[in-house]
Amino acid sequence: MENQETKFGFTQFAETWNGRLAMLGFVIGLATELITGSGILSQIGLM
């Protein structure tokens, strides 16, 4: 029980994973736009 560091809230662990998932989402969004030829807003019917 030496390592009782929390994994919730604004911790280095949480912010690292938040950044990684944000980068992954951005790349997936760009790839989807390249494959379909339309932007995300037009894909969900807002434009």
Results as ranks from 00 to 15, higher is better:
Thr16Ser: 10
Ala31Leu: 14
Val27Ala: 15
Trp17Gln: 01
Thr36Cys: 08
Gln4Trp: 11
Ile40Asn: 08
Phe10Ala: 00
Ala14Leu: 09
Met47Thr: 09
Phe26Leu: 13
Thr16Asp: 12
Leu41Ser: 05
Phe26His: 10
Glu2Met: 10
Gln12Ala: 15
Ser42Lys: 12
Glu5Ile: 09
Leu41Ile: 08
Thr32Ser: 12
Gln12Lys: 15
Gln43Thr: 09
Thr16Met: 08
Gln4Val: 14
Gly25Met: 05
Leu21Ser: 10
Gln4Pro: 12
Trp17Arg: 00
Phe26Gln: 13
Thr11Val: 02
Ala14Trp: 04
Gly19Trp: 01
Gly25Tyr: 07
Leu30Ser: 07
Ser38Trp: 08
Val27Glu: 10
Gly29Val: 03
Ser42His: 07
Leu30Pro: 03
Leu30Val: 14
Ser38Met: 13
Arg20Ile: 15
Val27Thr: 11
Leu30Cys: 11
Ser38Ile: 14
Leu21Ala: 09
Ala22Trp: 05
Gly45Ile: 02
Ala31His: 04
Gln43Cys: 04
Ile35Val: 14
Ala14Cys: 08
Phe13Asp: 11
Thr32Asn: 07
Ala22Asp: 10
Leu24Ser: 10
Ser42Pro: 06
Gln43Asn: 07
Leu34Pro: 00
Trp17Thr: 00
Leu30Tyr: 07
Gly19Lys: 02
Ala31Gln: 08
Leu34Lys: 08
Gln4Lys: 15
Met47Arg: 10
Leu46Asp: 03
Thr36Gln: 07
Phe8Cys: 06
Met47Asn: 06
Thr11Cys: 00
Phe10Arg: 04
Leu46Pro: 01
Asn18Cys: 06
Gly45Pro: 03
Ile40Cys: 06
Gly45Trp: 00
Thr11Asp: 01
Gly25Trp: 07
Leu21Met: 14
Glu2Leu: 13
Glu15Leu: 05
Gly45Cys: 02
Val27Ser: 11
Gly29Met: 12
Ala31Ile: 12
Ala22Phe: 05
Ile35Tyr: 14
Ser38Val: 14
Thr16Tyr: 11
Ile44Asn: 02
Ile44Gln: 05
Ile28Ala: 15
Leu24Arg: 09
Asn3Gly: 04
Ser38Thr: 15
Gly19Cys: 02
Gln4Phe: 12
Trp17Val: 01
Met47Ser: 08
Thr6Asn: 06
Leu41Cys: 07
Phe8Thr: 09
Phe26Val: 08
Phe10Tyr: 09
Ile35Gly: 04
Ile35Ser: 05
Leu30Arg: 06
Phe10Asn: 03
Gln43Arg: 09
Leu21Phe: 15
Glu2Ser: 14
Ile28Pro: 03
Phe13Ile: 06
Glu15Gln: 12
Lys7Phe: 06
Thr16Glu: 15
Met1His: 11
Gly9Ser: 01
